[in-house]
Design a protein around this nucleic acid. Structure first.
Lengths: 149, 149
DNA sequence: CTATGTGCAAAAATTTTGCAGTTCA
DNA sequence: TGAACTGCAAAATTTTTGCACATAG
């Protein structure tokens, strides 16, 4: 995702490209994703303390509207945003032990989605799948505890 | 799920079975599921206006802890609760047109989950899958609009 | 120049907690 | 009786909005 694409998108809507938006976009796109507003703002404020929370809030809403960001609400309740990496869809594996979030892509899932949707007369646009469990290291810790315990 | 089961569960924890809890449980279990706290409270208050929002809030948290209810946060942001119908797992089809939420079960999904998890060294306990799109009637409306449009 | 954007502060909407009086076991 | 429960009000969060000033186009 190049900054140019953003400029094109907003000008198409008669909106403006500002210093703040460029700053937020830059930081947001180069982040790992899954960031809460507070986290993004903290990050942005480090670069430019004058940028307010409200601007970050409104910019992320804007990016969501333009399709460059996606709001996500995981089971823990906090609203998070992640860059959309247009074209590629991915889902999430979430470790209940250490909180790590791993992204994955699976074609089987995509076709399964279509089959299920057809069975219910739905026309699907997108889906969300989250797998909750323990990653390798965390699963191992739990197993060790049980051994001879 | 019989009320008796609830009585057993809470007495096991040294908790009490009260009129309010019975009322909330009754209404909650006989609902369609996916209700927000405000909705549940409004419903409960119709039966007994003296029952406060706080009690509903705390009771649903309690039910969640006991495994009788599950908190869900769909993409629209509102926290909703649904009865767990122990043993059966299901996922959701969500209509973006009319907001209808349809539950479904799919064995293929369950095995796919295991395959994906293994590939990433995860041990999965549960998952969440949501398919967003348009149900039959809503999809039809959209199509009609496009015709000769 | 003018419509849009920004930032502060404050309003709204949610979720959670403290406390005094009530109730179940 | 005593620990748990209830309900009100108020605190803590989180999300949104109003408004005066700044700025891109």
């Amino acid at each position: 995702m190049k900054p140019d694409r953003f400029k094109t998108l907003i000008s198409e809507e008669g909106l403006k490209s500002t210093r703040q938006r460029a700053e937020i976009l830059d930081i947001f796109l180069n982040s790992t994703g899954h960031k809460s507003l507070a986290e993004i703002h903290a990050w942005v404020a480090k670069m430019d303390p004058k940028i307010g929370y409200t601007t970050v809030y409104r910019t992320l809403k804007l990016l969501t509207r333009l399709g460059l960001a996606a709001e996500r609400k995981f089971a823990d309740g906090e609203t998070r945003y992640e860059p959309t990496h247009e074209g590629t869809h991915h889902d999430h594996l979430i470790c209940l032990g250490c909180g790590k979030i791993v992204e994955f892509e699976d074609d089987g899932l995509e076709s399964l989605q279509d089959r299920i949707a057809r069975g219910h007369g739905f026309k699907i646009f997108h889906h969300r799948m989250e797998l909750y469990g323990y990653c390798g290291p965390c699963a191992h810790k739990k197993t060790s505890h049980r051994r001879k315990g």
